[in-house]
């Protein structure tokens, strides 16, 4: 099972995402922003970081990278995509996911181990969790406040498309405590917390994040 991870100029967590895929038992394939070649991967991860220095808006310039043109076309045909943190911002800028991520309510860069609830286990990235499962994975961002119009929020809630929701307290002013969402088809998922930073007890707060990566491998086998 070949899972790609895109490196943009300014990506930080690409090597962690590649490692998480390997640890889950997949073949991790590095992809580069300047090429439109998806190298026959069966799913792709857009990692965290500060692509293009977050200039203009987070994810705004990455959205026009050659690799994104290929990913956008593939995603519209059901290709599984996971955007983590900056990757989530790139997915909203690409209009593959609705809404936008803006500056955290208190303006702080927040780096903490965050309890979240898994609310949608029908996506290829979350099928290994149980509905309502509480997991602890790190958040580390300055612009993680999820905002969308009232109609979009109603649609997301009505269709069960909120994938992760902040538990206990809302860290950043996100509407409806939203930490992650999916598209109508369920193949594109964006999350602000970093599952790839919670895969081993030695370095993370838990091993809860590894299930994102084992889930996609299971989904691809099941196809």
């Amino acid at each position: 099972m070949r899972i790609g991870v895109v490196t943009f100029p300014g990506s930080l967590d690409d090597s962690s995402a590649l490692r998480a895929i390997r640890l889950a038992g997949g073949e991790a394939v590095p992809l580069f922003h300047a090429s439109d070649d998806l190298k026959e991967v069966q799913a792709v991860v857009l990692p965290g970081g500060f692509s293009y220095g977050d200039y203009l808006r987070c994810g705004a310039i990455s959205r026009f990278a050659p690799i994104m043109e290929s990913i956008i076309v593939a995603a519209e045909h059901g290709f599984p995509v996971l955007g983590i943190c900056n990757g989530f911002q790139i997915l909203t800028e690409s209009h593959l996911l609705p809404g936008a991520l803006i500056r955290n309510q208190d303006l702080h860069f927040i780096c903490t181990d965050q309890p979240v609830t898994v609310e949608n286990t029908n996506t290829p990235w979350t099928r290994g969790y149980t509905q309502g499962q509480r997991i602890v994975i790190p958040i580390k961002n300055g612009e993680g406040s999820y905002q969308a119009s009232a109609e979009t929020l109603a649609e997301l809630e009505g269709e069960g498309r909120v994938v992760l929701r902040y538990a206990d307290k809302n860290p950043n002013g996100s509407q409806n405590n939203i930490a992650g969402i999916t598209n109508a088809r369920g193949n594109v998922v964006g999350v602000m917390p970093h599952p790839e930073q919670a895969i081993e007890s030695l370095t993370g707060p838990s091993e809860d994040g590894l299930i994102f990566f084992s889930s996609i491998l299971q989904s691809l086998v099941a196809r």
């Binding site: 803006i102 500056r103 955290n104 309510q105 208190d106 303006l107 406040s145 905002q147 002013g173």
Partner: peptide, 13 residues
């Protein structure tokens, strides 16, 4: 400009 209904934490600061 941010739309009027979007929270502007920088402006508030």
């Amino acid at each position: 400009m941010l739309k009027p209904e979007i929270l502007d934490p920088q402006g508030q600061a």
